[in-house]
Amino acid sequence: MDISGVIDYLIGFAIMAMIYAVFALGLNVHWGFTGLFNIGIAGFFALGAYTAALLTSPPPDPDQFEDFIFGGNLANQGLLDLGVDAWFFLGLAAAALVCGLVALIIGTITLRLNDDYLSIATLGIAESVRFFFLNEKWAANGSKGLYRIPKFLGDVVAPENYDYLYVVVALVILLILFAAVQRAVRSPWGRVLRAIREDEVTTAASGKNVFHFKLQSFVFGAMIMGIGGALFAHHVRFLSPLTFDPLLATFVIWAMLMVGGSGNNLGAVLGAFVVWGVWAGTQFLPGVFSDPSFRLLMIGVIIVAIMLLRPGGLLGEWRRIVASRPASAAVRDSTDPG
């Protein structure tokens, strides 16, 4: 492999790692800051990706797709010819909205109840979304999947340079989301979330509507995941229900957050790079190490080991390293934003 090949590979790697970092940030909002146990990331991943892809793809050629009828074709509407590819951002926003809406519904049903119900419900959502896109061929071409999803600025950039452009796009969006999450969790709102995570009863006793805060956090995190899904769609440009296997769309992201340290945004991003690096790197290894089953086993072992040894993740929470501030104090001096 020559130098440019290596660079191309690294660029591709960085894009995927940054997309995963977006998911890790979303999961950090759920689990790291609020203690919400979402094991159906794949559901939001798929919803975000399909929403963006369907809105931007042209309607399919009837000769090629018998059943598939949908296609928003935002890319070619000419409605939003603002000099940039506005449809791309509309797709991102729509992906976030759809995921936020689903999270709102599921959260409203389950978050009033015991914590466990949310996790079971997210699992159900993930599977149901997959069944939907698998069975409803009219919606997204079933198991054959959607392909040739439009590129961002596809008519401006040469195909061989697309990844160079996209790595910048992914980086900018990751930075914006990072700043947004960082800002949110440092706000009084974020302090209430952490207080809920530490001690829900005390937080409720201090007059906070725990349900509302949890719901807001769940929706916020799900919207971030939706954006991650949309980013993925325009990078890989092929989606099928099989893309959203729980392993690559849920468990890997958990491993990333666990490795990076839940409650630590920088750790979440770092964890995404490290875990994706190990994942991508080991595929060149001989024998058992590149076996997907072995990697599945290892991801499970890593999660269990971290739960046993360092439940806060390898890096731990930034707050705890720098300065510790009792959760109850955070509740007392925070103001209710809603």
Partner: peptide, 22 residues
């Protein structure tokens, strides 16, 4: 917390499936 316990059980689930596949 129960969430930590459930998380660990998720890890166990993944490990068992990996082992079975392997």
């Amino acid at each position: 917390s129960t969430a930590i316990l459930m998380m660990a059980s998720l890890g166990v689930a993944i490990s068992i499936r990996g082992l079975v596949q392997l």
